[in-house]
Write a protein that binds this DNA or RNA. Structure first.
Lengths: 206, 206
DNA sequence: TACCCTGATGTCACGAACTGACATCAGGGT
DNA sequence: ACCCTGATGTCAGTTCGTGACATCAGGGTA
């Protein structure tokens, strides 16, 4: 048998989430996490760059999914439509592990340092999205803007989903939010009218 | 005369910017900054929450300007138009102090920790913007989305402005970028019509 | 079988980021 | 003459994060 229990990384993630949840991020020391996971503090830092990073899985498939879906979308599609499809395709990633996600989300919501890190991850996502859009032939500014808008919409959609008492699928919130975007360029009194217009056949995602 | 040289805070800001610029953020210790400013390390932490915060002025007028301009805009305007005006009105804040801004920007661009902090500041801005839009009567999701998209557009516009060899005014980049955003958001068949409606004057997207 | 190599971990030492508690003392008000 | 306040100094301590080196099971190879 091997010298140590296997999956030290997994144990560290679990221990960290439990402690952060139970006593707060600030009140938890890396030494505590390590002890609970049965390793030393030094080993924690061999697996995670810092105390925050343990909440942001390194094997995150999101960039690849978004890039793949974006690159694969039919060329004549409008940029925002491409992004909508990519985000919808990525939605399941958030819906699996539905047991741990709320804990994780609560911890992050309770701590500004962790929110900063989350914003950084989202910005990185926007960056890869912009890169992929450029490869589709979009001009620089357009690509960057479309990517940023897409991520912005995702942030809002995710927020809605987390707080949705009816537990509608994330994909639905994404589509609705991106539909809402269309209201933004119309004066407020036309909002309801625009609502009808925008509801024309957006369900064609394969 | 007073017991110490006045404006310790200002001296700390200056010393920090110089050192960050000259030897990098990581390679600079708070002790160094304090010594150069003629105070102790402890005093640094009385003025700034942490080593990063010294680059993000506490007297930042941006939130107030944005909130004020947003609240004051005519009610029938489309949300994105309201935001465009607010951002344009805030633009001068970035264009004054044009001597220090590039240094500051270079330091931030060179360090991920500082970029995280900048993203957090922008997110806070989006949050106040959303709050003000809600007070104008906008529904929750619409307000949040408009604010996020506005900040997203601002990020892109600011990036363009910083790298603009022709040094066009920031306000122009903001208008152009938000015009691009309208094209992205509007369904293709409505794009030209929306273009006429949203046109506020001289600008034209090439 | 005997040997070496590798990779994951432990051990130790240390600098640098922050924080709490208490001391100091000019200037202003009473 | 007195006290109060606010900005700073002093000091001790915790925690984060890193470099350098030691350990040793398991796998490959002669």
């Amino acid at each position: 048998m091997s010298r140590w229990e296997p999956d030290a990384r997994g144990r560290l993630e679990k221990a960290a989430l439990e402690l952060y949840n139970h006593q707060g991020f600030d009140a938890t020391t890396v030494a505590e996490i390590a002890t609970r996971a049965g390793v030393t503090e030094r080993t924690f830092y061999r697996h995670f760059a810092d105390k925050r990073e343990v909440l942001f899985p390194a094997d995150n498939p999101l960039p690849d999914i978004l890039a793949g879906a974006t690159a694969a979308a039919p060329l004549p599609l409008a940029p925002l439509e491409v992004i909508t499809r990519a985000l919808v395709e990525a939605a399941p990633v958030f819906e699996e592990r539905e047991d741990l996600a709320p804990q994780r989300q609560a911890v992050i919501a309770a701590n500004p340092e962790l929110q900063e890190r989350e914003l950084a991850k989202l910005a990185a996502l926007a960056s890869t999205l912009a890169h992929t859009l450029r490869q589709r032939g979009l001009e620089n500014t357009t690509a960057a803007l479309a990517a940023e808008i897409g991520i912005a919409a995702f942030k809002v959609a995710y927020e809605r989903w987390v707080n949705d008492p009816d537990r509608h699928p994330l994909a639905q919130h994404i589509r609705e939010t991106l539909d809402t975007a269309r209201h933004l360029i119309a004066p407020p009194d036309q909002a309801t009218a625009t609502d009808d217009v925008s509801r024309t056949g957006q369900e064609s995602v394969a």
